[in-house]
Simulated assay, not measured.
Amino acid sequence: MRQRHTIDAWGTKLYFDCDGESFDSDAAFAEIAAFVSLIDDLFSTYKPDSVVSQLRDGRMQIGDAPADVIEVANLCAVAKDLTEGAFDPWAVPGGFDPSGYVKGWAADKCADIAQEHGAQRVQINFAGDLALRGGFNDAGVIKPWSIGISNPDNTQEVVKVVEIFDGAIATSGDYERGAHIHDPYTGMIAIGARSASVIGPDAGLCDALATALMVAGKDGGKWFGLPELASYSAWVVNRNENTAWSVND
């Protein structure tokens, strides 16, 4: 049975759309809600006693952090290397802030939880980071999820549609939260792109790549020639032109 659910968390709304003949929605959403709360306790930069806040002010060292935080830190290091430092959660005001990775990472984890409880088709939307599994059931026909990318100057206008059965898409931009992504090279606000969407198998890495493209703009296109990113693609709106570009599309 198809079930839709919303959780208010992290200062936003988290949306779930799950379907499966044997899907136990009550158990799934209870476990997901507990996990989402845990993620806030671990990674919030607004909670003074979160693990990340303790790392940022030196009360804790990464080796003493819980396993989830160590996992995310290691994955952030990989993303930093792949993007030549354009994604660098250690080079932000206040210290280590993995927010540009953890939303996507958590979306994938929640999709796993839903599947463990019988969901065959899953869409999870964490404020622009989507984890997608199995397509959706349209009157008995399984079709890919159709995800629209908005015009950053008019968010009601869809300028591109991406179809995904299994995978993820993450979009970064300055049109909802304002200019909030910093350039780790300069410490200033990122000016490489107006918005960036990345499609691939891993939502956390999609999240990090989209953030990095906001910094690097067109210069980030070369990253997608790396073997590690062969299954990823990007669609980017340029900063000062009414144009867009894509790679591996």
Rank of each mutant, 00 (worst) to 15 (best):
D88W: 05
A119R: 12
A106H: 14
V102D: 09
A114E: 00
G192L: 06
A107K: 05
A86V: 04
A193R: 03
R121T: 00
Y185L: 02
D81T: 04
I147H: 13
N125V: 10
D183S: 04
C110G: 03
V159R: 15
K80S: 02
P144L: 11
E116Y: 05
K160I: 10
M188I: 00
S150K: 13
G178Q: 02
A86E: 02
G95S: 09
H180R: 05
K103Y: 12
H182I: 05
T83K: 00
G104C: 07
E157R: 15
G94H: 06
H180S: 06
F165I: 11
P144Q: 13
F87T: 01
N151K: 09
S172A: 04
S150Y: 07
D129I: 01
T171I: 12
G134S: 09
D166K: 14
P152R: 13
K103W: 13
E157M: 14
P144M: 11
A139Y: 11
S172V: 06
H180V: 04
N154Q: 15
I169K: 11
F126P: 00
P89K: 09
K109M: 14
K160D: 09
F87V: 01
A107P: 07
G94S: 03
L82V: 03
G95W: 09
I181V: 10
V122L: 11
G134T: 01
V122D: 00
G100Q: 02
K80L: 01
F165E: 01
A193C: 03
Y175S: 09
